[in-house]
Amino acid sequence: MKEWYAVVLLLAPSVFLLFSVILFPLVFSYYVSLTNFPLAEFRVTEWVGLDNYISTLESPRFWHSMTFTGTFVIIAVSIEFFLGLGFALLFDREIVGGKVIRSLMLLPMLMSPLVVSMIWKYMLHVDVGIVNYILRSFNLPAPAWLSVEPYAIISVILIDVWQWTPFMFLVLTAGLVSLPREPIEAALIDGATKYQIFRYVTLPLLRPVIFVAIMLRAMDALKVFDILYITTRGGPGIATESLTYYIFNLALVRRSIGLSCAASIIAVFLVFGLFSLYLKFKPKE
């Protein structure tokens, strides 16, 4: 009996933590999603069954936000990956001031997304922004970056790329550093060109790191909110309304907690399904 208590005592904190921060909110969200829960009432007013799920799935705005989020993740993460890989390869050698440049390159990633968004909001301002100032000095068109489609979509992607390319750079640099030197040296002795070494040796060896980097970034990019909240407010119209922004609107602007929980649960399952597919069909080692 005594041992049993000890096991309980040792396991309880972690189980409790797991329950309170993951399981309980998830189960509670699921329960609320089956009800009407107006924020102003702060209680369940009615049991509505699957109504909130049907409303969400029937809402074109929900599907629009899914499409925007998907587009955002694919474009932003792809650009970040290629730029990150490019920089990682560029700095994977001894160059003057390399360490300083590498440290400076990590700065955007260390800043708060809210601060980054505020800075970019003013840099992209149509009249007082530095981006348009430069464009005008070259007699180029200076558009309203944050309030006209498709510039608004391009802008939020670029802000994300600016902030998170360093993450890709960091992970891929770590991957490159950890690669064994022997296969590369063997390829050099065999007379392989630099491109051939990269294509047939470095890239295959780096594949597990690439996979992890893309997964981590994609999961993070799916939650994009700060940039949109500060810069475009999901506009113009709903052009830059992501899934999280849509859920935020339902929860805190419309103040329909039941509906926002239903949208969140659907989103969780859709994202989970997508990642499962990605894991299933990812290139074999």
Binding site: P38, R61, G235, P236, G237, V253, R254
Partner: peptide, 23 residues
């Protein structure tokens, strides 16, 4: 009204969509 948030969010969103030329 008790559900002002619903009206506010929906009307703002649709009017902005019309202003952006989406609908």
């Amino acid at each position: 009204i008790k559900y002002h948030g619903i009206h506010d969010e929906i009307i703002c969103s649709w009017v902005h969509r019309a202003m952006a030329g989406e609908v």
